[in-house]
Simulated scan of single mutants.
Amino acid sequence: MELIKNQSISVDCVVFGYDTLTKSLNLLLINRYLESEDKNEVLVDDYVLTGYHIYEHETLDDAATRVLKELTGLTNTYKKQFKAFGDPNRLRGEKDLEWIKSENFNFRTVTVAYYFLIKTEDVDLKNTKHEAKWFPITSLPKLGFDHEKIILEAYEDLKIKCLAEPIIFELLPDKFTINEVQEVYESILNIEIDNRNFRRKLIHKKYIIPLDEKKVGVSKKPSQLYMFSKDVYDKVYQKNYLINI
């Protein structure tokens, strides 16, 4: 099949990942680098979201899945389409114009933005294109296009969503401690949570299943491990907050 690119519509992917070692919510970005034809001048050197124009035979969802797979190799991940961005001037920055000219893009491109939740350790950065790199959400580099706006809106949506649905378990190992769950919430919401209160509320949720295992390889006292049961959650789910923090 001949791949015909739609020059007016693209998808952009906000890829969130949680690092259990640094306990930080991170964002996967790619380097946008362009030199002058004589190689004497760097015209563009910043970071952007991974994204691309859709092909005419694709749905938007299929295009977003393709773009993520091309970057990370991952397919079966949490994905949410959250907004379209169509400001006529969204690609009109000085460096953006240089980049678009070199890539032969359409100046008037509407992008549909998605965000994905993955575990940072599932991505082999050495095998990604465009020098992909994780950045803490609290310490982002200089960004191109309107991608700062897209990221901030995705982040706000994630904060709301994580209090209404159990999506944070997409960022955790299959087996986790209560402290690890708390740390993910604190990282996303940028707040401190009362440990005792949080533990009491979480362990009484029917879909948080205690395991006959403890976390090993830690210097302090081994902690009880738990798992999240989506089957149980789907049975008991009601339209209220997952956890009142």
Rank of each mutant, 00 (worst) to 15 (best):
D62L: 09
Q81N: 14
D62I: 06
V67M: 03
T72D: 01
T72K: 02
D62C: 07
T75M: 12
T65Y: 05
T59D: 11
E41D: 13
Y52C: 12
E56M: 14
Y78Q: 04
R32Q: 10
Y78V: 03
T72C: 01
L49N: 00
I54S: 03
N40E: 13
K83S: 07
T75C: 10
L68H: 09
Q81S: 14
Y47K: 03
L43C: 07
N31M: 05
K80I: 08
Q81P: 01
Q81V: 07
T72Q: 03
L68N: 08
T65F: 04
L43S: 04
T59Y: 12
G86I: 05
K79G: 10
K39W: 10
V42C: 12
L34K: 08
E58Y: 05
D46S: 12
Y33G: 06
L34D: 03
L49E: 00
T77H: 04
E58R: 06
Y33Q: 10
R66H: 04
L71E: 03
L68K: 05
K80D: 06
L43N: 03
K83H: 11
R66G: 01
Y78G: 01
A84E: 14
N31T: 05
E70D: 15
T75D: 13
A63S: 11
K39C: 11
V67S: 00
N76Y: 11
K83M: 11
L68Q: 05
D61L: 14
D62Q: 12
I54F: 05
K83C: 05
Y47E: 01
T77P: 02
T65D: 09
N76A: 13
E41T: 13
V42K: 13
T65N: 09
A63Y: 01
K79D: 07
D62T: 07
L60A: 05
Y33W: 10
L49M: 04
A63L: 02
D45L: 05
D38W: 04
N40P: 01
E56H: 14
D38T: 05
R66P: 00
D38R: 06
L71K: 02
L60K: 05
R66C: 02
Y55S: 02
L74P: 00
D61M: 13
N31L: 07
F85W: 01
L74E: 04
K83Q: 12
I54V: 15
A84V: 12
E37T: 09
H53F: 09
K83V: 03
V42F: 09
G86S: 15
K69D: 11
A63C: 07
E70G: 12
D62S: 09
L68V: 13
